[in-house]
Simulated assay, not measured.
Amino acid sequence: MSGGDFHSAFRPAAPWREDEPLECTMVIPEAPGVASFCFRAPSGAWFDHAPGQFLTLELPLPTGTVHRTFTISSSPSRPLSITLTVKAQEGSLGTRWMLDHLTPGTRLRAFGPAGVFTLPDAAPRKYLFISAGSGITPMLAMTTWIWDSGFEPDIAFVHCARRPQDLIFRQRLEHMASRTPGLKLHWVVKEDDPYRTWTGYRGRFNQLMLGLMAPDYLDREVFCCGPESFMQSVRDMLNALGYDMERYHQESFHAPAATEAEVPEIDDVVPSDDRTAELHFASSGVTATCRETDTVLTVARASGLNIPSGCTFGVCGTCKVKKTEGDVVMVHSGGIADDDIEAGYILACCSRPIGRVSVEV
């Protein structure tokens, strides 16, 4: 192939249309159980999409054809190909088939792109990207888009994983961050890798970490993606910190929304100064009326009761008590285990009562 023929082969002809199958051209291992699949249109068509959108693939499983949706991890600023990064989830047939059988040369039907989880406009803004697991894929697309736009990025990028080896796109993002001061990366892991040293954040992502990572979080537009429980904890954290939730955007990688009408309404319980609650301290026989924004620890002290406490912001776990009735909003910083929460325990220092609540104090 001559030089002219080579360049003409990569010159986009027209936008890609759904009636043309996509051809897998590369498979890139990213982390244990994670791979990126790069696709091109055989005709040379280019791809038009917004950063953060998703694509639906038609997969020919032995048990029958299935359709699976994946966020596009590549940026529309690089339109000659489109990349989907997938992670093997427990019980997932489609993802497992892709990891085991999808190889370069395979052609698949695809539908889209679609989705409303994307940057609001082209103007530079201050962003806070928060993700967990494969929820990092739209964040990479958005970060690359901002990078390629020529604007100096102002991104605080927070990603959480089980172990350092599970941090998807770590090297790619660290290379980008090494070239500009405007991209600040913050990795959080729950466990160390057995054969390497980890010097970053450990544990559950919490308010203390957020304050260290992005002290100006109130000024940033927040985009969040990950498991439902993770996004719920992020919302609880931001609500408790007084963040303007009109500037909060989220996308579940299990059920991405194709249109604004499909975006589920978020109806979080947010304690209010204008609503009263009732705390019953069962062991002491004391009942007190308070505001929803008061903590169980504050109300106990005002009632002359002693709950042992230490840090008072949900880290040490000293103030753990058993809740026997009612609901609280608890935004802790890692001082209580999930098993204890399921068993009914709360941290008095960071739990706020909703309605009538009874605790064993």
Rank of each mutant, 00 (worst) to 15 (best):
L99G: 02
R96L: 09
K126R: 15
M98G: 01
L102W: 07
Q165K: 03
Y127E: 14
R163C: 01
A123S: 10
L167C: 03
G112N: 11
S149K: 10
H175C: 00
P104S: 06
A177P: 09
D166A: 01
A156Q: 09
P138D: 03
A177D: 00
D154S: 12
D148G: 04
L93Q: 09
A161C: 02
G105S: 08
G112H: 06
C160S: 13
L140D: 03
F117C: 06
A110D: 13
L102Q: 07
E90L: 04
G105P: 10
T118C: 14
L140Y: 03
D154M: 05
G91Y: 09
E152F: 02
T137E: 08
L173S: 04
S149Y: 12
A110S: 15
P113C: 10
L119F: 12
W147C: 10
D154F: 03
R109D: 05
M142D: 11
W147V: 15
L99F: 02
M142R: 12
L167S: 05
G94D: 06
M139R: 02
T143R: 08
G133M: 13
I168Y: 00
I155F: 12
A114E: 09
S92D: 13
D100S: 04
D166S: 04
G91S: 07
L99S: 02
Y127F: 14
L167R: 02
P113I: 05
A114L: 05
R172G: 07
R170K: 12
V116N: 13
D100Y: 02
P153Y: 13
P164C: 01
S134T: 15
T143L: 08
G105Q: 07
F157G: 06
S134A: 14
L108E: 10
A156W: 04
H101C: 10
A161T: 01
K126F: 01
L99A: 03
F117V: 10
P120H: 07
W145M: 03
D148F: 08
P153L: 04
R125L: 14
D121R: 12
A114F: 06
D154C: 09
F117S: 14
A88W: 02
L99V: 01
D121C: 15
